[in-house]
Design a protein around this nucleic acid. Sequence first.
DNA 1: TGTTACTCCGTACACTGTACCCAGTTCTAG
DNA 2: CTAGAACTGGGTACAGTGTACGGAGTAACA
Lengths: 261, 261
Amino acid sequence: MPRDDDTGGHGREGVRRSLQLMWGTPEESTRGPKPALTVERIVRAAIDMADAEGLTALSMRRIATALGAGAMSLYRYVPNKGVLIDLMVDEVYREDVTAADAVRGDWRERLEAFARQEWALYLRHPWMLQVPQGRPMLGPNSMATTDISLRAVDDIGFTEDEMLAAVVTVSAFVSGLAKMIIEGMQASERTGIADDEWWEIQGEFVGPAVVAGKLPMLTKVGEAGAFNSMFDNFEFGLRCVLDGLGAQIAARRATAADREQ
Amino acid sequence: MPRDDDTGGHGREGVRRSLQLMWGTPEESTRGPKPALTVERIVRAAIDMADAEGLTALSMRRIATALGAGAMSLYRYVPNKGVLIDLMVDEVYREDVTAADAVRGDWRERLEAFARQEWALYLRHPWMLQVPQGRPMLGPNSMATTDISLRAVDDIGFTEDEMLAAVVTVSAFVSGLAKMIIEGMQASERTGIADDEWWEIQGEFVGPAVVAGKLPMLTKVGEAGAFNSMFDNFEFGLRCVLDGLGAQIAARRATAADREQ
DNA sequence: TGTTACTCCGTACACTGTACCCAGTTCTAG
DNA sequence: CTAGAACTGGGTACAGTGTACGGAGTAACA
C-alpha cells in the first residue's frame, strides 16, 4: 500500500522531481537505448483518456496500453500517478496562457475574460474539478495564468492582499459552479437515467414532503420551472461577483480620496 | 435485502433503494435473526472515519472492522459504497437544518448566515468537498437546508430563476473557496512538509522565472507577503458576492418601479 | 571487448469494491 | 413439535488498482 496518495507527490524528493519535470530541465543521458516514450506523450495520452472517460477511469495500466507499452514503463518517465496528474493539470493550463495574455481592457473586462476562460477550461476538461488541487504544485503554466489574472486587478486601489483575494474569489465561484453544473451533466449521462425519469423517481419520495408543505420554497421554485429552465446561472453569478468587486474598489477609492484631502 | 439488483446499484433500482434509505421507511420484517447493525450506525462510523482520515481512507472493509463486523455484512444494510456516501452527505446536512431554521433577518443577514454555516460544515467535514455530488441524490436534510436558504431571497423582487441562481452563486463561491483553502491545509499536514520548506523547494524552480521577470505580479504580491498573510479571503469574497446580489436586487426594484408608473 | 548505464517490463503484493454462496438463526405454517 | 421459509452474518473469490523489485536486453564509452 503506497500511503495516502490523495494525489501523490508526497515526500521532498517526489516534489522536487515533479517540479523538475514541469519546469523542464530534461537532463538527458547518452548511455543505453533511446527512450521509446516521452513525458509529453504520456501526459497527452492521459489527458485524452481523462477527457473521454473521466479521472476514475484513468489508470497507469490503461495509459500504458494506449501507448503500446508495458504498465511499468511509465515509471521510467514519471515517479507516480500523483505527479502525472500534476503534469496533466499544468499542461491544460498551457492552452490558456497565450489567450489570457492577449486580453485587454479595464479590470472588469479582464476579470470577466479570465472567468470565462476558466469556465471553458472546465467544460473542456471536466476531470480538472475532481483532482485535489489544493496543494499548489505550481507549474509554469498555472503560475503564468495566475500572474496574468492578477494584472487585471493591479493599480486599481487594492492592496496586494486584496488583489489576491479578488482573483481567488472569482476563481472560487467559477470552479464551484462548474463542479455543480458539470457533474450534474455527467451524472445523467453516466447512469443512463434521463432527467425527467430521474425527477420522477425523486418525486416519488419527495412528493409526500411537498404535500405536507415541508418544502414550500422548493415547491414554489420547482413549479415555476426553475430547475430545468434555460436561465444562465453562470452569467448571473459572474455579474454578482464582478459587481461586488466593483463596490469594493469604489470603497477603496473613496477612502483613498478622503486621505488625500 | 433481496439480491434482485440488476445493474448493481447505479440503475433505477439502486436509486430507488438509496432514496428509500434516506427518506426512511424501514419496512422491517420479523423473520430471521435481528440485525446486529443499523444503517445509522454504519453511516455514523463512516462519517467519523472520513472526518478523521479522509475519503480515500474510507473503505468498506475498514468500516466493517471498526464496527466489529465482517466486510460483506455492510451490504445487508446498504446496496453499495456510493449509496453509503450519499447517506453520509445527507446525514451531515442534518446538523444544519435546525440551526438554519432559526435564522432571522433580512435577505443579506440570512444569506450570510447560510454561507457561514456551509463554510463551517466544510471545515468540520472536509471530505464533503471530494465526494462527486453532481448527481443530486437529494435527501430530506439537504433539501430542507436548500429550502430554508431559498426563503432568504423570497419576496425581494427576484424571479424564481433568479432566486435559485442567487443561492447557487453563494453556494458555489463557498464550496469553491473551501476546496482551495481546506485542501491546501490538508496537504501541508499530510505530506509532512511544512509551509516554508514547501515554498523553499518551489522557489528553487520558480526563482529563475521570477528573476527573468516573467512573473511580475506574483513577485509583487509574493513580496508583499500576501501568500501567507492573515487576510481573510472568505470574508472578502463573501462581501463581494453579497454586495453583487444587492446590486441585482436594486436593479430589479428599479425596473419594477418604472413599470408601475 | 568488457563495463556500465540505461531501457522495457513481467511478476508480485497489498489493497479496493462487491458477486456469490453457505451456514446459522428465528419465526411461521401445518 | 417440527418442517420449511425467510432472513442475517460473513468467508471466499475475482477483477481491478498503484507500484516495488529485479531481471533481460541494448547502446555508448573505457
